[in-house]
Design a protein around this nucleic acid. Structure first.
Lengths: 227, 227
DNA sequence: CACCGTTTTCAAGGCTCTATCACGAGGGAA
DNA sequence: TTCCCTCGTGATAGAGCCTTGAAAACGGTG
């Protein structure tokens, strides 16, 4: 099973996290400072790093920067305050995630499993998703439908990406919100409808009236088919 | 729809929560003490529990511990003070989220929907059920009968799933109602007939007049056989 | 600060689905 | 056969869900 490096200056937090992870079958390593973390990461080559933001001396974001110089290991941040979240978001971090304190150990484990599953998925960095006529270039943030380009906003692009990763699968609105915005955001389902409407409108202009299909009472799914 | 157990010693809070939830289509059960909560949970098998931390006698954390002995039901904590949050964290108990008082009912509902969507997401053991010509893809919410697709509504899909999980088994109407809607729902048995009629009608159109068979005086069962 | 694109929310309206009733057909027992 | 109960079907009102238009928040930029 995967090895996880836990970095936090608070021993109590480390205990909670270690306990939860080992309970789920992970192996763990612990560090209490950013420096130790870098050293231990060299040695253990952990599969994932849990990084507290608020540490004295070298904080989590500093440590992340250092780690990123030599590795693309998935990083999960622990944050205590909202302004720290803002800083994470300002930070460009690919497939990573964050959890705010206080957190439930159970959720932490779920998120870690999700990250690992995702990174196992993208080991061959699939920069481009293609499904039928739809093509999504993630690095360029470009979307084309049968050679014609569609200008999508950030959220629209995210929504479409998620749908395209598992076409035919039906997503409930709450699931989309969780995947687009992260786990502790709470928006009205109508908001998703709005974005979907905008995507539909743009797709319709290119002759794809059914790019996104509604499954009444369940959710939405990708449905292309230019008919 | 899902059934939610609300546990708080303050009747006013319970009212607010119940009102918000029922407004969103949830069914609710209420308990004012930890002991009652455990008893009611046994009976109702709620899909999610809202647990106030600060209750006399058995407090929310105690109750959570007890619940966790027999169930992994999602739990959302209500907390009044920050030091209670610390205790959630200190405790090694899987809550799924928490909300601090005072809270907005709207946010509460959205969080609950997010939690339920998440847990529905993670517990998908059997993605596809197949029995003879019938194929049910749960994630895509797709039903096919010998390659031909049938458009089913949410309830129709549920009914057929239940029947297909244990083909040849005969289900009484009351059993179907319980499995589709959850405990303590009271509907006319005619309602089930309605849905079964609709399924039959759609199946008949594809040449399967006996997809669902009636066992007079007992109930219904899956019976495919294209004859 | 004003402007503009994006995101989010709100309310109205239409449409689908759901639950129930009423009535007649059919099965089973005496 | 007769009676009773169960089941199937048509019709229907109401609930719930989705779409759409409009406008309010938000954020970045000149």
């Amino acid at each position: 099973m995967n090895n996880i490096l836990i970095v936090d200056d608070d021993a109590r937090i480390r205990d909670v996290v270690r306990f939860a992870l080992e309970d789920s079958g992970f192996r763990t390593t612990e560090a209490s400072t950013g420096q130790d973390a870098l050293k231990l990461f060299e040695e253990t080559q952990a599969d994932l790093v849990i990084l507290d933001i608020g540490m004295p001396e070298m904080d989590g974001l500093e440590a992340c920067k250092e780690l990123r110089k030599s590795s693309t290991v998935p990083i999960l941040f622990l944050t205590a305050r909202d302004d720290e979240i803002d800083r994470i978001l300002g930070f460009q971090l690919g497939g990573d995630d964050y959890v705010t304190k206080p957190f439930s150990p159970r959720e932490l484990v779920l998120r870690i499993k999700a990250i690992l599953a995702r990174s196992a998925d993208t080991k061959s960095p699939d920069e481009v998703t293609v499904f039928q006529d739809l093509r999504l270039d993630h690095s360029a943030h470009r979307c084309t439908l049968a050679e014609a380009e569609i200008q999508l906003t950030g959220i629209e692009f995210s929504v479409l990406s998620i749908l395209a990763k598992a076409p035919s699968r039906v997503y409930a609105r709450a699931q989309l919100i969780e995947q687009v915005y992260g786990h502790n955001t709470y928006l009205s389902g109508r908001t998703v409808d709005s974005h979907i409407r905008n995507i539909r409108q743009k797709a319709r202009a290119l002759g794809y009236p059914d790019l996104i299909q509604t499954v009444h009472g369940v959710g939405v799914k990708l449905g292309i088919c230019q008919c």
